[in-house]
Design a protein around this nucleic acid. Structure first.
Lengths: 114, 114
DNA sequence: ATAGATATATCGACAATCTATATAATCGAG
DNA sequence: CTCGATTATATAGATTGTCGATATATCTAT
């Protein structure tokens, strides 16, 4: 994507959505977002990790280390009940915003019939 | 809208789109955006005017004062050819971004077949 | 006259992203 | 086995875009 400013604000929504499906670790989220969106998103580590810490501080996520089976330890994040509420709210905001942009892009043709 | 970060980046697209239809002055754009989007957008003057100056500096817009008929002078903006190109590009970026978000929101159900 | 809406403008604060950098474990190639 | 690439997490500093506050001035209605 060319315009990074466009993606601002949608990142928490996308991260919370991924975690609704299953627990994930940071690096996994970056790869999953890229593949799910047909490479539209290329979330940077320097953006994600501070965001995860922030969401955890807010109580939207909890985390645990998992290195079971002698594997490398990775930090998994899990969506909390509070996080589910925040996700629902952010999803609703996205709907509203996206609808608003499309209304403007569709032009003056359909308006005026309030 | 609750989340101002979400709207970041879409503002130039919306402004350029309005000017594609007709010349407008700043205050008029703020009101038109609010009414077209069912009040989803509430663009602030402190955001818009610097943006207009910036777009003009880039060559996307030209401007002229109009106080014809003894009316109050207002500064009208007009989309240039270059501005039309930028608009087309930003509209394409919006499509791509919006599609990407929706792919992620629709969940893992449909992916994996590529 | 005067209050409120219209109209434009700039500045400082704030939020979110990026790049760059650092550290370290794991994996594959040679 | 060793070395480079990838995996994995982390933080600091720079950049960008929005907002709130503030300033100025005009126009309208009372």
């Amino acid at each position: 994507m060319a315009d990074k400013a466009l993606t601002a604000g949608s990142t928490p929504l996308l991260v919370l959505k991924l975690l609704e499906e299953k627990d994930m670790y940071g690096y996994e989220m970056i790869e999953t977002l890229a593949s799910r969106s047909d490479q539209t998103f290329d979330l940077k580590a320097g953006t994600l990790y501070p965001l995860l810490h922030d969401l955890e501080k807010q109580g939207a996520l909890s985390s645990y280390d998992d290195g079971a089976g002698g594997k490398r330890v990775r930090r998994y994040y899990s969506l909390t009940e509070k996080g589910r509420g925040i996700l629902a709210q952010k999803a609703a905001e996205w709907e509203e915003f996206s609808r608003g942009v499309n209304l403007v892009l569709q032009g003056g043709a359909i308006h005026g019939m309030a």
